[in-house]
């Protein structure tokens, strides 16, 4: 591995994640609108929104402190660090040594910690409500997430996402493991919970009492809101990327050749598009769950993940 690829690849990863994230959101919104027989906004609408917001001044609550102003940066940068650690186009991640999937999970927790704090910072009851619910859902999702990650790591022999991808790329039958199947199912539920999609949370809601993630960011405006929106769409893309490159790694380049990267980029876009489409189908065919039914769903995810790892231990 040469020094150039060590420098080029992380920058490429960053550009893909940062650049494509709003597009995924736009794509989901567009298809969803189509499902509802609407024309829907342009697929590039999230970009227009972000540009507009970034050019605006911000209105900040008097009661808010520096925590409130720091939160967007923390949330945004923590996601950017994760973008460096996730295999996007190539199974080789030069910054692998920085950390593994456990670091990634806890970096998500960093952003969430600050978002929940800022939700309390403005002294508005809606913010606190959103923050409290978000913390509940993420706590319930955590064990399932950790166990499914454990399953994948044990099957691949590493907790580093880059190594996991290359391990699965090398051996085709390794992925044909029922345990990984269970882990995949559990991870899907967890990702829906983490990114606040239906049936856990409704990202399009405008009713304060039903808001979870949106409730937390209710008070942000201008540049701050742009950063948080961007961060949350990047979170969705990163989680989908992890899912795609762990369970469907085929086509990811293993080195740094131009043609290989082009092919893997094309395949990557197709795979992400497929999962985004699945999300659309899910969101269009289900209603939001009652808040206290959510632990049941996440409990199911937990059982699946326990089952995944136990069957890996017992059967192999």
């Amino acid at each position: 591995m040469s020094l150039t690829s060590n420098i080029v690849l992380p920058i490429l990863q960053l550009i893909v994640i940062v650049g494509l994230a709003p597009l995924v959101k736009g794509f989901i919104n567009k298809i969803e609108a189509r499902f509802q027989c609407r024309r829907g906004p342009s697929i590039f609408q999230p970009y227009y929104n972000l540009i507009k917001l970034l050019r605006k001044d911000a209105v900040v609550s008097e009661t808010a402190s520096w925590i409130f102003r720091a939160t967007p940066y923390v949330a945004f940068v923590s996601i950017l660090i994760i973008a460096l650690l996730v295999p996007v186009l190539s199974s080789c991640v030069p910054l692998n040594f920085t950390g593994d999937v456990i670091l990634i999970i806890y970096l998500f927790a960093l952003g969430r910690f600050f978002l929940a704090l800022s939700s309390l910072d403005t002294a508005s009851a809606f913010g606190g409500m959103g923050g409290s619910r978000e913390m509940m859902i993420s706590s319930m999702a955590e064990p399932a997430m950790m166990l499914s990650v454990f399953t994948v790591s044990l099957a691949a022999g590493s907790t580093n996402l880059g190594n996991i991808t290359s391990a699965f790329l090398d051996s085709s039958t390794l992925l044909l493991n029922p345990s990984l199947f269970l882990a995949f199912a559990a991870l899907c539920i967890v990702i829906i919970a983490e990114t606040g999609r239906i049936p856990i949370d409704n990202p399009h809601t405008h009713l304060e009492l039903t808001m979870i993630h949106e409730g937390m960011v209710l008070e942000f405006s201008g540049r701050y809101l742009a950063l948080i929106e961007w961060a949350s769409s990047m979170k969705l893309l990163i989680l989908l990327t992890i899912l795609v490159n762990t369970f469907l790694p085929w086509g990811a380049a293993s080195g740094l050749t131009f043609s290989g990267l082009i092919i893997s980029f094309a395949l990557y876009v197709v795979k992400i598009g497929f999962f985004a489409f699945l999300i659309v189908i899910l969101e269009s065919s289900f209603a939001k769950l009652r808040l206290f039914r959510i632990p049941n769903l996440l409990g199911t995810a937990f059982i699946l993940s326990v089952l995944a790892i136990i069957s890996l231990y017992v059967v192999g």
């Binding site: 660090i81 910054l95 692998n96 040594f97 920085t98 950390g99 593994d100 670091l103 790591s153 022999g157 590493s158 907790t159 580093n160 190594n163």
Partner: peptide, 9 residues
């Protein structure tokens, strides 16, 4: 299993 470098992160 893996490596970790909090400093570089």
């Amino acid at each position: 299993f893996t490596e970790l470098s909090p400093k570089s992160a």
